[in-house]
Design a protein around this nucleic acid. Sequence first.
DNA 1: ACGCTCGTGGCAACCGGTTCCCGGGCCGGA
DNA 2: TCCGGCCCGGGAACCGGTTGCCACGAGCGT
Lengths: 356, 356
Amino acid sequence: MTRKTTGDVGGRRTIRDVAARAGVSASTVSRVLGGEYPVSTSTRTRVMRAVRDLDYVADARAKAIAGAGTPTLAFVLDDITGPSFAHMAHGVEREATRLGHLSLVCSTDGDAERQLEFIEMMRAQRAAAVILVGGTADTAEYRERMARIADSLASAGSRLVLCGRPPLDPGTPVTVIEYDNESGAYALCAHLLAQGHRRVLFLGGKPSNTTAQGREQGYLAAHRARGVTADPTLRLFGDFTRDSGHRLIRQALAQGLDFTAVMASTDMVASGALTALHEAGLSVPEDVSLVGYDDIPFARDLNPPLTTVHVPYEDLGRLAVRTALTRTPDAPDEHLLLGTHVVVRASVAPPSETRE
Amino acid sequence: MTRKTTGDVGGRRTIRDVAARAGVSASTVSRVLGGEYPVSTSTRTRVMRAVRDLDYVADARAKAIAGAGTPTLAFVLDDITGPSFAHMAHGVEREATRLGHLSLVCSTDGDAERQLEFIEMMRAQRAAAVILVGGTADTAEYRERMARIADSLASAGSRLVLCGRPPLDPGTPVTVIEYDNESGAYALCAHLLAQGHRRVLFLGGKPSNTTAQGREQGYLAAHRARGVTADPTLRLFGDFTRDSGHRLIRQALAQGLDFTAVMASTDMVASGALTALHEAGLSVPEDVSLVGYDDIPFARDLNPPLTTVHVPYEDLGRLAVRTALTRTPDAPDEHLLLGTHVVVRASVAPPSETRE
DNA sequence: ACGCTCGTGGCAACCGGTTCCCGGGCCGGA
DNA sequence: TCCGGCCCGGGAACCGGTTGCCACGAGCGT
């Protein structure tokens, strides 16, 4: 009664089982499977036959620990359900497998604690890179925490990538890939103002979220540039969900807020806002104009098709893994800023009746 | 010059490094970290201090191979970008982490070859369960292939779960969780027919895809039940994307097809169809009624809000992992069939002018 | 015919952990 | 005082692979 499972059925096969069945040593099996080492044809076929008979697959963890094995890469996001995140995840996946890496994706559901747990877990997995995506509260504590993570990842030969999230202090070993929220929002809002709108309602996300902040800054900057004062009562905050947009518009209408256009911080928010507007008997863009942000595929199917700003999410994901994985050890820390552009559809028109 | 990295900075820490720094043996470190074994307070604090100083994290792969370690579960889908898949992924993730498992999600981009690769890879990872999701071509070859996979997974102590995909031959060690495509489509189409529609255009997916087939069957069954003959020229096929719906409607209109309602096999498809209809100057539901399938969150934001059938995708995902993981070794193979229900919104009305 | 490569394959160390088994020190009870 | 336990920690085997090193046999040149 040895520890070898020599039976023909059931149980997990080890390389030694295969070796025994083929009448060779474990090393030989490993070499046959590895493919680099010269092995006589007869031995090779015997081994391959045993592998097939036993339906053997080498344990990936064991390979990994022994130095062979597929490298891994981790992608940590808030919620896979958000279309923009999903597209990034898609880009990450594609590029990772193209580069021969396995990619793990983890949803934190917006929980900062879980995010830390995941990062730690990925460090334990010896991931070649950890990509963090989505805005956060940019507090001092946050920066410090991220810096610590960046350091410990770096010292373990891994790499922290921040994607769509603000950079840390210079000198921190981190790769940052952002897209320009502020300019996008600026251009979008400028478009609205150029049409003659003067009271545009801003539907924000969590005030502490950097993505939400960037978009709000763009909104404000556009107002400043055009010399129109932005009424602070026209800025409402919720989150990035459809329901948030719906709720905020109902609230605005109930409060009797006066506005001729709505700038939602997300297409999802815009989508909810649109139905709330419709439910209130308002038509878009005749009664009120509406714009979103992200250019998710659905944006063009709303009625009217939504004017929004296009963000190359899939490229973002691809780029994140590429720069992280193909980076030379001592290269300077990269900080890429991807451009966005507004795509004009039919949801914006000049205000029907110019106020003031 | 030993192999131990005793420096204070850089490099991957091993348990032996920690042991050396704390002046104990590796076993002791392992025990402190494990928490079960009695260790004196002084030793424990020394070890913990060394762990902190060195920023040590145990290698998850090594733990796994040694029998400790977090179990893993794999989720293989076609495209994370599809909203319904994303929701399932979400459910899977949540439930998996709730049950203390790490979940890997892999997108195959609809490539059957990559799907096999992933399954093999997950087998190599010794995943506790492999969840396959989404329709497929239900060929003899497919069933055989899946049966083989189910067997080899089972013999390795793992489990194959088919989610939203047809069952295999009885006796195959597999868990199947389906939602009822045919009844849902039946109810939906019956709703259309009950309103007086007699010529409803069906926008299908790939004809070989089982999900697409199920929905088509429901469409046909509803016709039969009502005694209305379904004109075969009113069945167009593409895939489950928005663009497919858009294209198919343009094509139908160009061909001069005669129909008063459209039944899209997916909300995404319906979404594209809707804009194509609008672009052609047709209004919904006055000129033509439209229904979808899936009840993705956006469905209610289309204009008009889309009548569709609700599928509990997130529950589906949750259920898949729960039944797979909490199953007792010799339990009979489960086959769950989840119900769906149609949600009536404003995209359906009686045909404006009754034909024939 | 002898010695040298070269082709081939086994042994054993190693990857980074966990855990069984055992032994030393200290305590209390007889 | 002596002995039995208990508490605690170390050594070593093991998990399932990979790979450096070495030995053995055959073919070949001289």
